[in-house]
Amino acid sequence: MWSSELTATVSMTEFILYALLAGLGVAAVAGPLGCFVVWRRMSYFGDTLAHSALLGVAVGVLLELNLSLAVAAVPLMIATAIGALEEHANMSVDTLLGILSHSALAAGLVVMSFLDGVRVDLMSLLFGDILSVTAADVYLIYSVASIVLLLLGVLWKPLLNITVDPELAAIEGTNVVVVRTALMIMTALVIAIAMKIVGVLLITALLIIPAATARSVSRTPEQMALFASAIAMLTVFLGLAMSWHADTPTGPSIVVCAALLFVLSSFKKVQS
């Protein structure tokens, strides 16, 4: 009796700890990356990639591939497709993304229905299931997050330059294609690790809301990236606490907390 209760307590602490660690790891990298999503007006693009991650899961399970790899690979393929279509299609990027984003989501759901016998928890894919995070997930999240943070640091100036003006950057010697591709890969990687935390439908929220919140307190791009990171981490903490006390779904709780912080920040005059 005593011992089983003790085990329960230990595992309880453990999974909350894993959840918190995983959430903080994703948040730390979602902040600065989210800044670029906001600065480059890529939120719809991020949505499209995130939605296509669901297709990644479905295809991964169907073909018995490594899931993490499949989840990163499909958004990357979609990103490449967008790049190619942008040049040839006779329509605005906005329309193009609208088509791809929802087609990818629908295709993911359809492919998933073919998965007989395999139990896939659709809700957790769509809205996240941070409480099911394992030690292996935490390792993966921290490995990916450190790689992306390192890359962001190394490519910081070229990334800012292609954000300001890609042609000017090209003339000044930046390899725009390489830097842009690196940003796509980083986005796809972060989507892959963020999926378990907030799910494909809410990933963009975790990217852009903390970044937008950080804007009102930042004077430089670096400040904004750091604040976005801190705000995203605070958001994860608050979301978990809310979910714990009010018994609400964790992913949506994190996003609700992010939104509340954003509303609070919007009362503050923007720093220039």
Binding site: V38, W39, V164, D165, T220, Q271, S272
Partner: peptide, 21 residues
């Protein structure tokens, strides 16, 4: 080469002063 583009489109969320630019 030095290049001066027609105009650049900066998102208002990017905190960037002229000096930093």
């Amino acid at each position: 080469l030095g290049y001066m583009p027609q105009k650049i489109k900066l998102d208002p969320t990017l905190p960037l002063t002229t000096l930093r630019f």
